[in-house]
Design a protein around this nucleic acid. Structure first.
Length: 673
DNA sequence: ACGGCTGTGACT
DNA sequence: TAGTCACAG
C-alpha cells in the first residue's frame, strides 16, 4: 500500500533516470553490429520462441511489443534480431545486466544523493547541486548552454520547431523573472543533461530522464519522451499534466488499487481524484492510502531519494510452468541446488566488492495441488539465518522447502506407501538473501567470523526450522540422503534431530571478548585454540555424523548470527577494539563466561561448553579445508594473509584421520575468481 | 495453467 | 519477526 509522506517545504530538484530498453543496449554494446537494427532480448523458453523482455525502439516501431513471444515478434517484424539472455545452471542469468546497471549508477552517483530504484532506473536528488549552480554560476551567466539541455522537453511550454524551440528552452532556463523553483529546475536541466552525456560517453548507454520537484513527477516525466531525451515538469504544469493523466499510469496505481478507483469511484484520470475529499478516500482505502491518493491528485509526494546504490536483497528463482512442474523431492533439490549456487555466487561478489554480508535466507515456492486436493492453501515461504557456504545454503534451503512442504500438505500430506506420485507439484522456486549489512574492512573481522561460526548453531534443521523441527523431524538427514517424505513422516516426533551444530549461545555477542589479535596470530605450533566447525558436513553425500539429541524447546529465538557481530562491530568499533586489545583471557574461558551470563542459561549451554572444548576445538593449523572453502571469500583472503604474515616455522602435519581434513596451513588453493 | 525473474515496501 | 501481498518493469 502506498503511504503518504509529508512533503518538505523547500523545493527539491529530483531526477529520474531510466535506461532505454536497457537489456537491448547491453547486448548491442556487446555486439555492435546489432546497433540500429530492430532487436529484442528473449528469455530462452523453448516455447514459441521465448518471451521478449526488452525491445529496441526500432523494433517497437514495427509493432513489436514486450510480452510477445519470439515467434510473434518475428511475424510482426521479420528483420528482428533476437538475442537470448545468458543461461547458467539451467536458468536465465541476469548478471551482465546487473553489472551494466552498476556502471551507470556509479556515474550518476557522482552529483548527488542517488537511489538505485531497479536494475535500470535511478533517482537523483540534485537539490544541492542545483542550488550551488544557482548561487555560483546561474544559467544566465553562462555564455552557452549545453545542446543536450536545450533539447529538453518542458511541460507547459509551447513547442515550435527547430532553432526556435531551442531558443525558447534557453529562454525558459535563463529567464529573469522566473520563480525560484523554476530556476532550480533550470539548473537541474543542465545538470541532468551533463550526466546523461557522461553516461553515454562512459558506458555507451543512452537514457531518458525526468526532472521535477518530487520523485513521482520525475518518474512520470522520464517516460514521456523516450528514448534519449529528458522532460521537465515545472510546478505550473502539474495540474494540467495530472488532469488528463489516466489513473493507471500513475506509479502504484497500475494494479488493483487503480482498478478499484476506476470501478468504485468512476475515476479515469488522476485529476478526477480532486473531487474526492481526503476523508472520503480514507474511508475507502484506509488512512494512509487515502491521504496518499489525496496528495498525488495534487502532485504532492514527499518520498525522499534514498541514498542507496546497492540492492537490499539478492534472489535467484525459476518457474516450472505447467507440465514442467516438479513432483519429486530430488528434483526440487536439484533445482534448489542450482539456485543456491547462483545466489551464493552473488553473495560472494557482494562480499568481495562491497564488503556486505547477508543474514537471512528465504525460500519461496509456488505450487498447485493436483486435481483431488482442492486445498487452495498457498505454499508458505520460510526463512532462516543465512550461513555462508554453498553447501550450507543448499542444505538450509532444502530444509526450508521441506518444512514448507509439510505445512502445505498438512497432516495428510504423506502417504503410507512409497507411491511415486506425490500430491504436490511445484511450479516455482526461489531463494533469496536479505538483511544485508556492511562489514568493516580490515583484518579484524576474521576472528569474529570464526567466533560466530563456531558458536552459531548451524542453521540446518534445528537452527533454522525452529518449531518446524517438530514438524519435520530429521529434515537434515533427508536433505543429504534424499529420503522420501514418507520416510520422514514415519519418524516419531520430537526426537532426534540430526545436527552438526554447536550448542547455542545467546545473542549477546556485543560482550564477547576476543582473544587479542596478536595473541591469536599464534604462529607457533602449540597455538591457541581456534574454534571452528567440524568439517565433515560437506557435500550431499556426507554422513550426518556429530549427531546428538536436540532439545528443540530451548533453542534459538533470537539466534545469533554472524551479522549480529558485524552489526555490533559497526555500532561500537571503538569499544570492541579496546576490548580485544586488552583482553588476555583465553578464548574458551571467556566464552564460558559469556554463555553462563546469558539469559537462558539452560542445560544446553552447559552441555555445550563441554562439547566446544572437546569436539569443536581446533588448532589453527587443523582447520578443515572444506570448512575453509566455505568461508566468505573475503574472510578467506584475510585469513590467508594472516597466515602469510605469521609463517609457522614448521607446520605440523595434518591430523591423520582422514582425507577430508587437510591443514590449510599447508594448502592454499588458488582463489576463485 | 504461464511472461520470467527480480526487486521493494507495507501490513499484520 | 516472519510471512503475505501488491506492484513494477
Amino acid at each position: 500500500m502506498p503511504v503518504a509522506r509529508p512533503e518538505t517545504s523547500d523545493a527539491r530538484v529530483i531526477a529520474h533516470v531510466d535506461m532505454d530498453c536497457f537489456y537491448v543496449q547491453v547486448e548491442q554494446r556487446k555486439q555492435p553490429e546489432l546497433r540500429g537494427l530492430p532487436t529484442a532480448v528473449v528469455q530462452y523458453n523453448e516455447w514459441q520462441g521465448g518471451a521478449l523482455i526488452a525491445v529496441s525502439y526500432e523494433a517497437r516501431s514495427c509493432g513489436v511489443k514486450r510480452s510477445m513471444r519470439g515467434e510473434e515478434a518475428t511475424a510482426a517484424c521479420p528483420e528482428i534480431q533476437l538475442v537470448q539472455v545468458p543461461v547458467a545452471r539451467g536458468k536465465a542469468d541476469l548478471n551482465t545486466y546487473r553489472s551494466a546497471g552498476s556502471e551507470v549508477v556509479s556515474i550518476l552517483a557522482r552529483s548527488g544523493r542517488c537511489e538505485r530504484a531497479s536494475i535500470d532506473e535511478v533517482y537523483l536528488d540534485l537539490t544541492d547541486a542545483a542550488e550551488s549552480m544557482l548561487a555560483d554560476a546561474p544559467p544566465e551567466s553562462l555564455e552557452s548552454i549545453d545542446e543536450e539541455a536545450l533539447k529538453s522537453h518542458i511541460l507547459g511550454m509551447s513547442r515550435e520547431d527547430g532553432d526556435d524551440f531551442k531558443k525558447s528552452v534557453r529562454d525558459w532556463i535563463c529567464r529573469k523573472g522566473a520563480d525560484r523553483r523554476d530556476k532550480l529546475l533550470g539548473c537541474g536541466i543542465i545538470i541532468v543533461a551533463e550526466l546523461r552525456k557522461q553516461v553515454l560517453k562512459e558506458t555507451e548507454f543512452s537514457c531518458s530522464a525526468g526532472i521535477a520537484h518530487n520523485k513521482m513527477l520525475a518518474k512520470l516525466a522520464s517516460g514521456m519522451n523516450k528514448p534519449a531525451q529528458q522532460t521537465v515538469v515545472p510546478y505550473s504544469a502539474v495540474q494540467e499534466l495530472l488532469s488528463s493523466l489516466p489513473i493507471k499510469k500513475m506509479k502504484q496505481l497500475g494494479g488493483k488499487l487503480g482498478t478499484s478507483l476506476q470501478t468504485d469511484f468512476g475515476i479515469d484520470t488522476v485529476g478526477d481524484l480532486l473531487q474526492f475529499s481526503e476523508t472520503k478516500l480514507q474511508e475507502h482505502y484506509g488512512v494512509n492510502t487515502g491521504t496518499w491518493l489525496w496528495n498525488i491528485a495534487r502532485g504532492i509526494s514527499g518520498e525522499e531519494v534514498q541514498g542507496r546504490l546497492l540492492p537490499k536483497s539478492h534472489g535467484s528463482g525459476k518457474t516450472f510452468p505447467g507440465p514442467r512442474a516438479l513432483r519429486s523431492l530430488s528434483n526440487v533439490q536439484h533445482w534448489l541446488n542450482q539456485l543456491c549456487e547462483e545466489l551464493y555466487e552473488r553473495l560472494s561478489s557482494d562480499l568481495e566488492q562491497n564488503k556486505r554480508i547477508a543474514s537471512t535466507l528465504t525460500l519461496h515456492a509456488s505450487a498447485f495441488g493436483s486435481k483431488d486436493s482442492d486445498s487452495h492453501k498457498k505454499f508458505p515461504s520460510k526463512s532462516c539465518p543465512l550461513r555462508y557456504g554453498v553447501t550450507k545454503i543448499q542444505e538450509d534451503a532444502f530444509n526450508l522447502f521441506q518444512a514448507a512442504l509439510r505445512e502445505y500438505m498438512g497432516p495428510f500430506g504423506t502417504k503410507p506407501q512409497g507411491n511415486k506420485k506425490e500430491t504436490w507439484r511445484i511450479t516455482g522456486l526461489s531463494v533469496s538473501a536479505s538483511k544485508i549489512v556492511d562489514i568493516p574492512s580490515g583484518t579484524s573481522s576474521i576472528m569474529r567470523y570464526f567466533q560466530s561460526q563456531s558458536t552459531i548453531p548451524s542453521c540446518s534443521t534445528s537452527g533454522c526450522l525452529q518449531e518446524d523441527v517438530a514438524v519435520t523431524p530429521s529434515a537434515s538427514e533427508s536433505c543429504s540422503e534424499q529420503k522420501s517424505v514418507e520416510t520422514q513422516a514415519a519418524m516419531p516426533e520430537e526426537d532426534i534431530s540430526i545436527t552438526d551444530t554447536l550448542p547455542d549461545l545467546d545473542n549477546s555477542y556485543g560482550n564477547m571478548d576476543m582473544v587479542p589479535e596478536k595473541d591469536v596470530s599464534c604462529q607457533s605450533n602449540d597455538a591457541k585454540e581456534f574454534l571452528t566447525q567440524s568439517g565433515s558436513n560437506r557435500g550431499t553425500q556426507t554422513k550426518t555424523n556429530g549427531q546428538r539429541i536436540n532439545n528443540s524447546k530451548e533453542k534459538n529465538k533470537g539466534m545469533p548470527s554472524i551479522v549480529d557481530i558485524f552489526k555490533n562491530y559497526n555500532a561500537t568499533p571503538q569499544s570492541q577494539q579496546e576490548t580485544r586489545e586488552d583482553s588476555t583471557v583465553s578464548l574458551t574461558s571467556k566464552r564460558a563466561n559469556l554463555s553462563s551470563s546469558t539469559s537462558h542459561s539452560s542445560e544446553v549451554n552447559q552441555e555445550g561448553e563441554d562439547r566446544r572444548e572437546t569436539e569443536w576445538g581446533y588448532k589453527v593449523g587443523e582447520i578443515d579445508q572444506a570448512v575453509f572453502d566455505e568461508l566468505p571469500y573475503e574472510i578467506q583472503r584475510e585469513f590467508r594473509s594472516f597466515l602469510r604474515h605469521n609463517k609457522r616455522p614448521n607446520a605440523g602435519k595434518s591430523k591423520g584421520d582422514g582425507s577430508a581434513s587437510s591443514s590449510i596451513a599447508h594448502y592454499f588453493p588458488p582463489l576463485k575468481k
